[in-house]
Design a protein around this nucleic acid. Structure first.
Length: 442
RNA sequence: GGCCCUAUCGUCUAGCCUGGUCUAGGACGCCAGGUUCUCAUCCUGGAAACCCGGGUUCAAAUCCCGGUAGGGUCACCA
């Protein structure tokens, strides 16, 4: 059996969206699985709609997702080859120049179609038969210099020795005519595999109005590429067991076209978020910080308060609570982190410091005891603070002790636990805030 | 509309080929409880589906037929 060679052939008339990325990824996975390779072919024959920025977006999207290709071609660079193939077809009387019909603009080149039935075996859907008569002598080129999509596509697949064409199911009805062209050109017929579409929540075809257009948008939102390809792979495919989180290596090992579904799959951000979270959790501290720091708004960068040992510890603290890195940015922008960057003293009132029906006097006593216990603590880590304070809380009532401490430090009804905050704030600032609260209660 | 494709919890899906082990399994989300000073995390539990109708069979989510619904495609765009 000859070498497996697949291709991803996007036209640079739009961004690399979720669906395209998955198609590329399946093509890539299949080639890798079979020890072959995938090539990238930019189909830029539509000069009006093709744009460089789209090509760049496609390239960077593939790069981000680590979808590698062994070679890259631009269809526009193969114009000479296309016209000579077209000439050959005309010379062999398999195609002919035809006058424009019904007021159509000019002469076009049509393929002679003898009709009959075209049958092909789709690797995912099985045998598909099409009566090809009503196609008529269809157009393959606008002129010798301007081949139509079908022609250029087939010519390139033939020349580039593509063994497997893996593409979206919207191409399934194009396949018969492409087979006709391929046969006229004398190429060996490739295997076809049409994968189901990715749907929007309302089951319609996923499009711009359903959110992010380019996969690069997901990069910007702080999704990890490993999470993205993992999730994408599971849209219409799964390894057949209960595993949900698979590395690229495992994906390659497990992948098979037979396990791809026939029905479309709805793109679900919630699940993507969950997958992403799994990957964030697995990041080492350094890997995490490297990315996290890019999501700190400018005004907070290098602007950590004096009392802060480091911004890094703060970022690390929120590692388990974000679902994507953009969540960090939201934390900063929402004021959620005000306890760290600048407490608003007006937020702290004696009523709020005191837990439910506790007395001011008792609360004050608790806070004083906390200060007393922390004053001489050498290593002011969250763990050590907890070791000092937890017994006190257990003894006098957890809420009665911990709520005042937490509120004194954060000025918020919802905040991290007091031990973590104390550790992040440092000894001096922690005691300063506690004393301020004690004063308020007097 | 023609042609083609598809159909299991709200969503992603296992099971279907090789009928019984399926009172249909897992995951996300949701709800409840637990852990907890709050929020989040984490743990436990719960609600939630075989599109409909016929047929074959002792037995059908699984096989067959017919509906219905959804999607794709019908370009001198890709």
């Amino acid at each position: 059996m000859s070498k497996v060679r697949t291709r991803f052939a996007p036209s640079p008339t739009g961004f690399l969206h979720i669906g395209g990325a998955r198609t590329a990824f399946f093509s890539f996975l299949y080639a890798k699985k079979l020890g072959g390779e995938m090539i990238l072919r930019i189909e830029d024959t539509d000069k009006e709609r093709s744009e460089k920025k789209y090509e760049e977006d496609i390239l960077s999207g593939l790069d981000w997702l680590q979808i590698g290709y062994s070679e890259i071609f631009r269809q526009s660079e193969r114009a000479d080859r296309h016209s000579s193939l077209l000439k050959k077809l005309i010379d062999e009387n398999k195609a002919y120049l035809s006058k424009g019909e019904r007021g159509e603009r000019k002469e076009v080149i049509r393929l002679r179609n003898n009709g009959g039935e075209v049958v092909f075996n789709d690797l995912i859907r099985g045998e598909i038969k099409t009566d090809v008569r009503d196609l008529g002598d269809f157009v393959v080129a606008k002129s010798l210099e301007e081949p139509v999509f079908h022609f250029a596509n087939v010519a390139d697949d033939g020349d580039m020795k593509i063994s497997h064409i893996i593409r979206g199911e919207d191409h399934i009805s194009n396949t018969p005519r492409q087979i006709l062209i391929s046969e006229a050109l004398g190429f060996a017929r490739p295997q076809y595999a049409h994968i189901p579409l990715i749907l929007a929540p309302d089951k319609s075809k996923l499009s711009k109005r359903h959110g992010a257009v380019s996969v690069i948008q997901y990069k910007k939102m702080g999704y990890l590429p490993e999470a993205m390809i993992n999730y994408l792979a599971f849209l219409g495919w799964n390894p057949g067991d209960d595993r949900e989180i698979l590395s690229l290596k495992e994906l390659i090992e497990e992948f098979s076209l037979e396990k791809i579904h026939k029905g479309g799959a709805v793109f679900n951000v919630e699940k993507l978020n969950w997958v992403n979270k799994q990957y964030i959790n697995r990041l080492s501290e350094n890997e995490y910080l490297k990315i996290a720091e890019d999501y700190v708004p400018e005004k907070y960068k290098n602007n950590a308060p004096d009392y802060s040992p480091s911004l890094k510890k703060l970022l690390l603290f929120y590692k388990t609570s974000i679902v994507k890195f953009e969540g960090l940015k939201e934390l900063f922008d929402s004021g959620e982190l005000r306890w760290f960057f600048g407490l608003n003293e007006k937020d702290i009132t004696s009523e709020k410091i005191v837990w439910k029906n506790d007395e001011n006097k008792a609360t004050k006593r608790h806070l004083k005891e906390i200060v007393f216990r922390l004053k001489n603590l050498e290593d002011f880590s969250s763990e050590n603070v907890k070791a000092e304070i937890q017994p006190l809380a257990d003894e006098r009532g957890r809420a009665s002790v911990l709520h005042p401490m937490r509120f004194s430090l954060s000025g918020r009804d919802r905040s991290p636990d007091p031990f973590s905050m104390a550790g992040l704030l440092g000894k001096e600032e922690t005691i300063k805030r506690l004393n301020r609260a004690i004063k308020l209660l007097s």
